[in-house]
Amino acid sequence: MAAINIFHYLPGNSVIHRIDTRIKLVCMIMLSITTSLMGRVWDYLFLTIILLLFFWLSGMPVPRLLKELKYFHLLILMIIGIQAFSLPPAPGAFIPIPGFTLAGLKSGLLLGWRLVVIVIICLLFTGTTQISSLRRAVEWFLHFIPGLPAARIGTMFSLTFVIIPLIFDRAAEISDAQKARCVSGRKNPWQRISFMVFPLLRRTFEQADEMAMAMESRCYSEVYRKTAMKTSGYDWMALGFTALVCGFLFLL
Protein backbone atom coordinates (compact mmCIF):
# COMPACT_ATOMS: atom_id res chain seq x y z
CA MET A 1 0.00 0.00 0.00
CA ALA A 2 1.23 3.49 -0.77
CA ALA A 3 2.71 5.49 2.09
CA ILE A 4 0.79 8.72 1.58
CA ASN A 5 -2.95 8.73 2.15
CA ILE A 6 -3.31 12.39 3.05
CA PHE A 7 -5.83 14.45 1.05
CA HIS A 8 -8.00 11.33 0.69
CA TYR A 9 -11.56 11.33 2.03
CA LEU A 10 -11.73 9.80 5.53
CA PRO A 11 -15.30 8.63 6.20
CA GLY A 12 -16.92 9.90 9.37
CA ASN A 13 -19.96 11.58 10.86
CA SER A 14 -18.35 14.48 12.72
CA VAL A 15 -19.74 18.03 12.79
CA ILE A 16 -17.17 19.02 10.14
CA HIS A 17 -18.16 16.06 7.91
CA ARG A 18 -21.83 17.11 8.11
CA ILE A 19 -21.35 20.73 6.95
CA ASP A 20 -22.83 21.37 3.48
CA THR A 21 -20.00 21.08 0.91
CA ARG A 22 -20.85 24.45 -0.69
CA ILE A 23 -20.50 26.17 2.70
CA LYS A 24 -17.31 24.19 3.42
CA LEU A 25 -15.86 25.27 0.05
CA VAL A 26 -16.60 28.95 0.78
CA CYS A 27 -15.06 28.58 4.27
CA MET A 28 -11.93 26.98 2.81
CA ILE A 29 -11.56 29.77 0.23
CA MET A 30 -12.00 32.44 2.94
CA LEU A 31 -9.41 30.78 5.18
CA SER A 32 -6.93 30.25 2.30
CA ILE A 33 -7.16 33.91 1.22
CA THR A 34 -6.76 35.06 4.84
CA THR A 35 -3.68 32.83 5.21
CA SER A 36 -2.06 34.21 2.07
CA LEU A 37 -2.59 37.80 3.33
CA MET A 38 -1.40 37.28 6.94
CA GLY A 39 2.08 38.34 7.98
CA ARG A 40 2.37 38.42 11.79
CA VAL A 41 3.27 35.61 14.17
CA TRP A 42 0.14 36.25 16.29
CA ASP A 43 -2.12 35.88 13.23
CA TYR A 44 -0.59 32.48 12.45
CA LEU A 45 -0.83 31.39 16.08
CA PHE A 46 -4.50 32.38 16.36
CA LEU A 47 -5.47 30.68 13.08
CA THR A 48 -3.47 27.54 13.92
CA ILE A 49 -5.32 27.19 17.26
CA ILE A 50 -8.71 27.61 15.52
CA LEU A 51 -7.76 25.08 12.82
CA LEU A 52 -6.53 22.56 15.40
CA LEU A 53 -9.90 22.95 17.14
CA PHE A 54 -11.65 22.16 13.81
CA PHE A 55 -9.27 19.22 13.39
CA TRP A 56 -10.18 17.86 16.80
CA LEU A 57 -13.90 18.27 15.98
CA SER A 58 -13.44 16.40 12.68
CA GLY A 59 -12.19 13.30 14.52
CA MET A 60 -9.43 12.66 11.96
CA PRO A 61 -6.47 10.55 13.17
CA VAL A 62 -3.84 13.24 13.88
CA PRO A 63 -0.83 10.92 14.66
CA ARG A 64 -1.37 8.93 11.43
CA LEU A 65 -1.70 12.08 9.33
CA LEU A 66 1.42 13.60 10.95
CA LYS A 67 3.35 10.44 10.09
CA GLU A 68 2.12 10.58 6.49
CA LEU A 69 3.12 14.23 6.20
CA LYS A 70 6.84 13.35 6.37
CA TYR A 71 7.40 14.51 2.76
CA PHE A 72 5.91 17.91 3.62
CA HIS A 73 8.17 18.16 6.67
CA LEU A 74 11.16 17.80 4.35
CA LEU A 75 9.73 20.38 1.92
CA ILE A 76 9.12 22.85 4.75
CA LEU A 77 12.63 22.34 6.17
CA MET A 78 14.05 22.92 2.69
CA ILE A 79 12.04 26.18 2.32
CA ILE A 80 13.21 27.43 5.74
CA GLY A 81 16.82 26.59 4.82
CA ILE A 82 16.65 28.33 1.41
CA GLN A 83 15.01 31.45 2.89
CA ALA A 84 17.54 31.63 5.76
CA PHE A 85 20.36 31.95 3.24
CA SER A 86 18.56 34.10 0.63
CA LEU A 87 18.11 37.51 2.33
CA PRO A 88 20.87 40.15 2.51
CA PRO A 89 22.40 40.63 6.02
CA ALA A 90 21.30 43.61 8.15
CA PRO A 91 24.00 46.33 8.50
CA GLY A 92 26.15 45.75 11.58
CA ALA A 93 24.84 42.23 12.25
CA PHE A 94 27.53 39.55 12.49
CA ILE A 95 26.67 35.89 12.17
CA PRO A 96 29.56 33.41 11.73
CA ILE A 97 27.72 31.29 9.10
CA PRO A 98 28.31 32.74 5.59
CA GLY A 99 25.08 33.80 3.82
CA PHE A 100 22.87 33.06 6.86
CA THR A 101 20.65 35.90 8.18
CA LEU A 102 18.23 36.09 11.09
CA ALA A 103 15.73 38.00 8.91
CA GLY A 104 15.94 35.17 6.36
CA LEU A 105 15.37 32.56 9.07
CA LYS A 106 12.35 34.50 10.39
CA SER A 107 10.95 34.84 6.87
CA GLY A 108 11.56 31.10 6.24
CA LEU A 109 9.86 30.11 9.50
CA LEU A 110 6.81 32.27 8.67
CA LEU A 111 6.65 30.86 5.11
CA GLY A 112 6.98 27.32 6.47
CA TRP A 113 4.25 28.00 9.06
CA ARG A 114 2.00 29.39 6.30
CA LEU A 115 2.47 26.18 4.30
CA VAL A 116 1.60 24.12 7.40
CA VAL A 117 -1.59 26.20 7.90
CA ILE A 118 -2.51 25.75 4.22
CA VAL A 119 -1.91 21.99 4.44
CA ILE A 120 -4.15 21.82 7.56
CA ILE A 121 -6.94 23.74 5.74
CA CYS A 122 -6.69 21.39 2.72
CA LEU A 123 -6.56 18.31 4.96
CA LEU A 124 -9.68 19.45 6.81
CA PHE A 125 -11.51 20.03 3.53
CA THR A 126 -10.45 16.96 1.53
CA GLY A 127 -10.51 14.61 4.53
CA THR A 128 -14.13 15.43 5.36
CA THR A 129 -15.60 15.91 1.87
CA GLN A 130 -16.56 13.24 -0.64
CA ILE A 131 -15.30 13.85 -4.19
CA SER A 132 -18.81 13.42 -5.67
CA SER A 133 -20.12 16.01 -3.24
CA LEU A 134 -17.28 18.40 -4.15
CA ARG A 135 -18.10 18.00 -7.85
CA ARG A 136 -21.78 18.83 -7.19
CA ALA A 137 -20.82 21.88 -5.11
CA VAL A 138 -18.52 23.30 -7.84
CA GLU A 139 -21.21 22.65 -10.43
CA TRP A 140 -23.78 24.41 -8.26
CA PHE A 141 -21.63 27.55 -8.02
CA LEU A 142 -20.82 27.54 -11.74
CA HIS A 143 -24.36 27.02 -13.00
CA PHE A 144 -25.01 30.72 -12.31
CA ILE A 145 -22.50 31.67 -15.06
CA PRO A 146 -24.09 31.17 -18.50
CA GLY A 147 -22.07 29.44 -21.24
CA LEU A 148 -19.67 27.63 -18.87
CA PRO A 149 -19.50 23.80 -19.08
CA ALA A 150 -20.21 23.53 -15.34
CA ALA A 151 -20.39 19.70 -15.29
CA ARG A 152 -17.01 19.28 -17.02
CA ILE A 153 -15.33 21.90 -14.84
CA GLY A 154 -16.80 20.20 -11.75
CA THR A 155 -15.43 16.84 -12.93
CA MET A 156 -11.99 18.32 -13.64
CA PHE A 157 -11.99 20.06 -10.26
CA SER A 158 -12.65 16.81 -8.39
CA LEU A 159 -10.29 14.77 -10.63
CA THR A 160 -7.44 17.19 -9.90
CA PHE A 161 -7.99 16.65 -6.16
CA VAL A 162 -7.93 12.87 -6.73
CA ILE A 163 -4.82 12.90 -8.93
CA ILE A 164 -2.52 15.06 -6.72
CA PRO A 165 -2.27 12.44 -3.92
CA LEU A 166 -1.96 9.68 -6.54
CA ILE A 167 1.16 11.37 -7.98
CA PHE A 168 2.67 11.59 -4.48
CA ASP A 169 1.75 7.92 -3.91
CA ARG A 170 3.55 6.88 -7.12
CA ALA A 171 6.57 9.07 -6.31
CA ALA A 172 6.88 7.45 -2.87
CA GLU A 173 6.57 3.95 -4.38
CA ILE A 174 9.22 4.66 -7.04
CA SER A 175 11.51 6.24 -4.46
CA ASP A 176 11.20 3.13 -2.22
CA ALA A 177 11.84 0.84 -5.21
CA GLN A 178 14.94 2.85 -6.14
CA LYS A 179 16.24 2.76 -2.59
CA ALA A 180 15.87 -1.02 -2.67
CA ARG A 181 17.95 -1.08 -5.88
CA CYS A 182 20.54 1.41 -4.52
CA VAL A 183 19.71 3.99 -7.26
CA SER A 184 19.67 6.79 -4.64
CA GLY A 185 23.36 6.11 -4.08
CA ARG A 186 24.32 7.21 -7.62
CA LYS A 187 26.40 10.37 -7.76
CA ASN A 188 25.15 11.76 -11.10
CA PRO A 189 22.14 14.00 -10.25
CA TRP A 190 20.81 13.95 -13.87
CA GLN A 191 20.75 10.18 -13.83
CA ARG A 192 18.93 10.18 -10.48
CA ILE A 193 16.34 12.70 -11.74
CA SER A 194 15.75 10.81 -15.01
CA PHE A 195 15.40 7.51 -13.11
CA MET A 196 12.67 9.20 -11.03
CA VAL A 197 10.85 11.38 -13.60
CA PHE A 198 10.45 8.92 -16.49
CA PRO A 199 8.87 6.05 -14.52
CA LEU A 200 6.81 8.51 -12.44
CA LEU A 201 5.23 10.20 -15.46
CA ARG A 202 4.82 6.91 -17.32
CA ARG A 203 3.08 5.24 -14.36
CA THR A 204 0.92 8.35 -13.70
CA PHE A 205 -0.21 8.43 -17.34
CA GLU A 206 -1.07 4.74 -17.23
CA GLN A 207 -3.06 5.30 -14.05
CA ALA A 208 -4.91 8.26 -15.60
CA ASP A 209 -5.79 5.99 -18.51
CA GLU A 210 -7.08 3.31 -16.13
CA MET A 211 -9.13 6.01 -14.38
CA ALA A 212 -10.69 7.12 -17.69
CA MET A 213 -11.49 3.48 -18.56
CA ALA A 214 -13.08 2.93 -15.16
CA MET A 215 -15.25 6.04 -15.63
CA GLU A 216 -16.15 4.94 -19.16
CA SER A 217 -17.09 1.42 -18.06
CA ARG A 218 -19.36 2.91 -15.39
CA CYS A 219 -21.16 4.94 -18.09
CA TYR A 220 -19.85 8.28 -16.82
CA SER A 221 -21.96 11.12 -18.13
CA GLU A 222 -21.94 14.87 -17.67
CA VAL A 223 -25.73 14.74 -17.59
CA TYR A 224 -26.76 12.89 -14.43
CA ARG A 225 -29.47 12.85 -11.82
CA LYS A 226 -28.44 15.49 -9.29
CA THR A 227 -29.00 15.01 -5.57
CA ALA A 228 -30.54 18.03 -3.89
CA MET A 229 -28.14 19.95 -1.65
CA LYS A 230 -29.65 21.44 1.47
CA THR A 231 -28.25 23.86 4.01
CA SER A 232 -29.29 23.97 7.64
CA GLY A 233 -28.94 26.63 10.32
CA TYR A 234 -25.87 24.78 11.55
CA ASP A 235 -24.16 25.27 8.13
CA TRP A 236 -24.81 29.02 8.27
CA MET A 237 -23.40 29.10 11.81
CA ALA A 238 -20.18 27.47 10.51
CA LEU A 239 -19.97 30.06 7.73
CA GLY A 240 -20.62 32.90 10.21
CA PHE A 241 -17.92 31.62 12.58
CA THR A 242 -15.35 31.34 9.75
CA ALA A 243 -16.24 34.86 8.54
CA LEU A 244 -15.80 36.10 12.13
CA VAL A 245 -12.33 34.49 12.39
CA CYS A 246 -11.23 35.92 9.01
CA GLY A 247 -12.69 39.35 9.84
CA PHE A 248 -10.90 39.35 13.23
CA LEU A 249 -7.56 38.59 11.51
CA PHE A 250 -8.13 41.30 8.89
CA LEU A 251 -9.16 43.99 11.37
CA LEU A 252 -6.49 43.38 14.04
Binding site: T155, L159, T160, T204, A212, M215, E216, C219, S221
Partner: peptide, 19 residues
Protein backbone atom coordinates in the same frame (compact mmCIF):
# COMPACT_ATOMS: atom_id res chain seq x y z
CA UNK B 1 -28.87 9.54 -20.49
CA UNK B 2 -26.29 11.16 -22.82
CA UNK B 3 -22.87 9.50 -22.43
CA UNK B 4 -19.68 11.56 -22.73
CA UNK B 5 -17.57 10.42 -25.73
CA UNK B 6 -14.57 8.22 -24.75
CA UNK B 7 -12.09 10.63 -26.35
CA UNK B 8 -13.52 13.62 -24.48
CA UNK B 9 -13.53 11.66 -21.23
CA UNK B 10 -9.87 10.61 -21.68
CA UNK B 11 -8.86 14.15 -22.53
CA UNK B 12 -10.76 15.45 -19.47
CA UNK B 13 -8.79 13.03 -17.25
CA UNK B 14 -5.45 13.85 -18.92
CA UNK B 15 -6.21 17.56 -18.71
CA UNK B 16 -6.88 17.20 -14.96
CA UNK B 17 -3.64 15.21 -14.65
CA UNK B 18 -1.71 18.11 -16.17
CA UNK B 19 -3.48 20.60 -13.90
Amino acid sequence: MAKTSPLNLRMTVYSSLFT
